[in-house]
Design a protein around this nucleic acid. Structure first.
Length: 892
RNA sequence: GGGCGGUUAGCUCAGUUGGUCAGAGCGCGUGCCUUACAAGCACGAGGCCGCAGGUUCGAGCCCUGCACCGCCCACCA
């Protein structure tokens, strides 16, 4: 069972990824099993537009770390994977590919053929995503993989749409929507991103009818829309314009007479206090237009070109039209002034084209009635959002929610289940494709050409994937899901809608907890972006550092809402950690061979966190200590996992394995083996401890732990086939504070001794005889003499004598002074250390005493706090006495 | 305009109910190729914990204000 000298993760990682899936460890049963907690989570389905980026890997690693830990904890665990058809995004990339490769537009192919092409794309890239996820060790149940356009999920979409329609929550109507002239579709408010950009505020004079020489000056950022003005508006309370009430103005360039209206729309403090009203091209004006029954004059069309209604400007692009309108106004002396003005332009989230507010007929979902129960669910804690600060963002948005435009003029997506009748003109909305109009019976019906917003189907994801609307066993068992891990960027797009639709459709919340992760940034905290060129390709770094190292590097920075700075250094040091573990195992295996120990017979996993070394009648201090440390690590791991502090989980295993296990425990065991007293027993305890440490680490670094565990543990009928399903170390083992304290003392003595040795080098005048060259020999030398530190502290060969402790400490100090022939300078050095500590102790003791004597504190502080301070004070005083004793010995 | 987060060692970050919390990784300095690991080992240097007040016996930690940095939301023409 020798181990290759070099740690080469690429040699075993892909193999285990396949073996795990083949073993079926990630596929839980449909029915709930007695005595097991259910832990379920649905993946935020990646878009099928391309391959996964490092942000996905962070998300999947966080999910996987939790899922694997839950599985090892014994929970009935489901991680359901899948992909999203991502309507507009996917249609866009396929159209682009089509244009670039074949020079065709989707219209050249026709709807049916185009959709077929997108499916082809999906097969190719969806597969790539799955492959990538498997390679990162994601422990998904691939037998339950879902796609938002699967027949089952499509049925859920229809069911939901029809239900909402029947409840009057979905309606069709002519309203102002955000229109992307490039994508040629309506967009929801969320799909429009606002960017501030420099612009101008133009002041334009409109002549007032029947008042020669009287003009009213409006201020606008979009002069081209004036062609569609159907009123000008002043604030009713604005005295400056009282004479205009009831008047009519003549719209320049088109010479249309339009009324002056009074409406709060006009803010007297802004611009000139007069606003032009274009109901067809501005959301505010649209509303004002309804209030005042103004006609609509649409001068900009779906292609962002001026319509026939724009008269002389017809056919011009909207921005060309702006230039021309301004020039013409200027020529007529109607352009009063041009003022620089920063304005925020709404752009299409996908293609960055400036969206055009246009009036068109679309399908909408009424949100207020859906939002109310969703708000309550978070308020009353049925859903917990982590970090909590995002709950506030959630409430803010939900309280101001507006109706959702759900129809898209795309071809790729869920076709809206509505049929228009050529006979009576009415709409039939139906779960099944109808043969005839439900109102007049005419067979001349045609399905609505639009598809649904892609987020509509995503909003059903937690239950549509489990079989809803059928009452499947999966749904019964795994819904509501336990946890959702996702990014803040889709809190409104997705999370909020899942909560609303989940409650509406199933009557229950879709998940209990929402964990929001941060962004992966580069080494300098810059956002990653293709244009910056600082992106990290997961597969590339996996190839370079190994999956475990990349996962670990990500987790080392992961906590709720925290952005993560991922650098080459961090991945390199994580790989160093993996390498360290690899080599620890290598050493262990060599030792096991040497003492004639084969693989560890595991059998039933130990309930106790680690067994002590079976040496006749005595438990070596280091065994008591390492068990204590492992117990502590297991307990802290549970806390870290429960609060999603992955960075802490990573820190716990790092410190335990590297600092405690490798640097101290193994080094001391080397000595024990050299001492020759029952070496086999020592090696065996060491191996058992390591085995448990591997389990503790497995959720974070699944591959290396599996590889080593398989080699370490003998096949046995009772042994789990994979570490994936081996029980993890559970907290609750006996804490051994005494061993921890004594070992801590040993550590500080050894460290002090080493420092002295280093100092000694600098000062050639004072040589220390028999000093060791390195850590291992350090301990060896110390342990070699009967009076040396370990044994001194142990107060015997192996076991500590509690009563002998203070004396033991003094003895150790004396041994250092006498046995090691310390120079005066060196003794001074130790004295300084001790004195520094004494000063600290005195300070904290004085402070504690003062606190305890403070009447106001005693009165105000809770009893347990006071008690805690008393206990600490006692401990400080005890340590003070001990340190003083050390000082006295040194003073010899 | 509203809201949220950040500011701790040269760099990237921990620090969970205020009291052994001044820490980690990388980097840096010194000494070690020691038969698990040089992707390593040992030791060390380095920080008015953004600034100014306040609460407290005691403040990276709580309160107030300020200064930068970042993010989200918003229909002010």
């Amino acid at each position: 069972m020798t181990l290759e000298k070099v740690y080469e993760p690429q040699r075993f990682e892909p193999r285990w990824a396949e073996a795990w899936i083949a073993g079926g460890y990630f596929t839980p049963p449909e029915k709930k099993q007695d005595g097991r907690e259910v832990f379920s989570l649905v993946i935020p389905p990646p878009n099928v537009t391309g391959s996964l980026h490092i942000g996905h890997m962070l998300e999947h690693t966080e999910i996987d770390a939790t899922i694997r830990w839950r599985r090892m904890r014994g929970d009935q665990t489901l991680w359901l994977p899948g992909q999203d058809h991502a309507g507009i995004a996917t249609q866009m990339v396929v159209e682009r590919a089509l244009r670039e490769k074949e020079g065709l537009s989707r219209h050249d192919l026709g709807r049916e053929e185009f959709v077929r092409r997108v499916w082809q794309w999906k097969e190719q890239y969806g597969g790539a995503i799955i492959h990538q996820m498997k390679r990162t060790g994601a422990s998904c149940d691939w037998t339950r993989n879902r796609f938002t356009l699967d027949p089952g999920l499509s049925r859920a979409v229809r069911e939901t749409f029809v239900r909402l329609y029947e409840k009057g929550l979905i309606y069709r109507g002519e309203y102002m929507v955000n229109w992307c002239p490039r994508c040629h579709t309506a967009l929801s408010d969320l799909e429009v991103v606002h960017e501030e950009a420099p612009g101008n505020l133009w002041h334009i004079r409109y002549p007032v009818k029947d008042m020669p020489g009287r003009f009213v000056t409006v201020a606008t950022t979009r002069p081209e829309t004036m062609l569609g003005d159907t009123a000008v508006c002043v604030n009713p309370g604005d005295e400056r314009y009282r004479d205009l009430h009831g008047r009519t103005v003549v719209l320049p360039l088109v010479n249309r007479e339009i009324p002056v209206i009074t409406d709060p729309l006009a803010d007297p403090k802004f611009g000139t206090g007069v606003v032009k009203v274009t109901p067809a091209h501005d959301p505010n004006d649209f509303e004002a237009g309804r209030r005042h029954n103004l006609p609509h004059v649409a001068v900009i069309g779906l292609d962002a070109r001026m319509t026939a209604a724009a008269g002389a400007y017809a056919g011009l692009d909207r921005f060309e039209a702006r230039t021309r309108v301004l020039a013409d106004l200027e020529a007529q002396g109607l352009l009063e002034k041009t003022e620089a003005y920063a304005l925020s332009a709404g752009r299409c989230q996908r293609c960055k084209t400036i969206v055009e507010p246009l009036v068109s007929t679309q399908w909408f979902c009424r949100m207020k009635p859906l939002a109310e129960p969703a708000i309550r669910a978070v308020e009353d804690g049925r859903i917990r959002i982590v970090p909590e600060s995002y709950a506030k963002t959630y409430f803010e948005w939900m309280h101001n929610i507006r109706d959702w435009c759900v129809s898209r003029q795309l071809w790729w997506g869920h076709r809206i289940p509505a049929w228009h009748c050529a006979g009576c003109g009415q709409v039939t909305v139906s779960r099944e494709d109808p043969a005839a109009c439900a109102h007049c019976g005419s067979p001349r019906i045609e399905q609505d050409p639009d598809v649904l917003d892609t987020w509509f189907s995503s909003g059903l994801w937690p239950f549509s994937t489990l079989g809803w609307p059928d009452r499947t066993a999966d749904l019964e068992t795994y819904y509501p899901t336990t946890l959702l891990i996702t990014g803040f960027d889709i809190l409104f797009f997705w999370v909020a809608r899942m909560i609303m639709l989940g409650i509406e459709c199933t009557g229950d919340v879709p998940f209990r907890t929402v964990y929001i992760h941060g962004l992966v940034r580069d080494a300098h905290r810059q956002k990653m972006s293709k244009t910056r060129g600082n992106t990290i390709d997961p597969l590339e770094v996996i190839e370079q550092y190994g999956t475990d190292a990349v996962r670990f590097a990500l987790l080392r920075g992961a906590a709720p809402g925290m952005d993560i700075a991922l650098s080459e250094e961090r991945m390199a040091s994580s790989r160093a950690f993996a390498n360290k573990i690899w080599n620890a195992a290598r050493f262990l295996f060599l030792q096991m061979e040497k003492v004639g120990l084969g693989q560890l017979p595991l059998g039933e996993p130990p309930r106790e966190v680690a067994k002590p070394c079976a040496i006749a009648g005595a438990v070596p201090l280091e065994d008591r200590w390492i068990r204590h440390k492992l117990n502590e690590a297991a307990a802290r791991m549970e806390q870290a996992q429960l609060s999603y502090r992955y960075h802490e989980a990573a820190d716990i295993v790092w410190t335990f394995l590297w600092d405690d296990f490798c640097d101290w425990y193994v080094e001391i065991k080397k000595l024990r083996v050299q001492q020759g007293v029952e070496p086999r027993a020592h090696v065996e305890t060491m191996a058992e401890t390591f085995e448990l440490a591997l389990r503790l680490l497995h959720p974070l670094m699944p591959f290396i732990t599996e590889e080593l565990w398989q080699r370490l543990a003998a096949k046995d009928a009772r042994r789990p086939e994979s570490i994936c399903i081996a029980p993890c170390p559970q907290p609750g083992g006996a804490a051994d504070e005494e061993a921890a304290r004594r070992f801590g003392l040993l550590q500080s003595m050894v460290t002090a001794a080493r420092a002295l040795r280093a100092d000694n080098r600098v000062d050639p005048g004072a040589r220390v005889d028999g000093w060791i060259e390195s850590m291992s020999t350090d301990v060896q030398s110390v342990a070699a003499s009967e009076a040396a530190v370990i044994d001194a502290l142990a107060g015997g060969a192996f076991e500590l004598n509690p009563a002998a402790r203070p004396a033991g400490v003094r003895r150790a100090a004396a041994d250092f002074a006498v046995g090691l022939k310390l120079s005066g300078a060196q003794i001074d050095s130790i004295r300084q250390r001790v004195q520094k500590r004494l000063a600290e102790l005195e300070k904290v003791i004085a402070s504690s005493r003062r606190q305890l004597s403070s009447g106001s504190f005693i009165a105000k502080a809770p009893a347990h706090v006071v008690e805690g301070i008393r206990e600490k004070l006692a401990a400080y005083e005890k340590e003070l006495a001990e340190q003083q004793a050390v000082l006295a010995e040194l003073g010899l």
